[in-house]
């Protein structure tokens, strides 16, 4: 499988066909995986993932690769950045597609809910928990992640996650005992 390490960003942005082909070979699995997940979440046939992914590539090379030029290799890896950008592009694609095919009333609630911007609030007094502690509780309790998964996401070891969870719960118990 082609690797992002083979990509010379400078020559890619200069517009070389060979560099574009190499970029596509490396990026297609990531973009297609994102597209598959997005179409599945929106209740669209997985067969359309290729069209959605193709639209992402179109956006990447449009306007003299304006979107691709916004990538800063000093900040993040190309693969991760692409995955996030591809998700936004894919959701935009499906939104446009939905607008052209159906009115809002015709969209099933289950599908519309995916775009719901309602935010489920984390009702913890400000400053009681650190950001990391709050996130660990979110991952473990709301997302049903196990410790290893949370540790992998946070780039820490499992013991650190357990410790963070423990300290967070201590603070919460203490706080609510005082308030009660």
């Amino acid at each position: 499988m082609a690797s992002f390490d083979d990509i010379d960003l400078r020559t890619l942005l200069a517009g070389g066909k060979r560099d574009w082909d190499r970029f596509v070979a490396a990026a297609a699995p990531v973009i297609h995986a994102v597209a598959r997940r997005v179409v599945a979440a929106h209740g669209v046939s997985v067969d359309e993932a290729v069209d959605v992914a193709q639209d992402v590539f179109v956006r990447l090379c449009a306007d003299d690769r304006r979107l691709l030029r916004s990538y800063d290799p000093a900040r993040a890896s190309l693969g991760t950045w692409l995955a996030i950008v591809a998700r936004s592009c894919a959701i935009d694609h499906l939104r446009r597609r939905r607008q052209s095919h159906a009115t809002l009333e015709e969209v099933p609630d289950s599908v519309a809910a995916v775009e719901d911007k309602h935010v489920e609030r984390l009702n913890i007094p400000a400053g009681l928990l650190t950001e990391r502690q709050a996130l660990v509780l979110r991952l473990l309790y709301d997302r049903d992640m196990d410790v290893a998964e949370a540790a992998s996401l946070l780039k820490v070891d499992a013991q650190t996650v357990r410790s963070t969870h423990h300290k967070a719960m201590l603070r919460l118990r203490e706080h609510f005992r005082v308030e009660a």
Partner: peptide, 12 residues
């Protein structure tokens, strides 16, 4: 978004 992105990278 963060979890989906990470999952997609693993799938890819």
């Amino acid at each position: 978004l963060a979890l989906d992105t990470r999952a997609a990278l693993h799938e890819a």
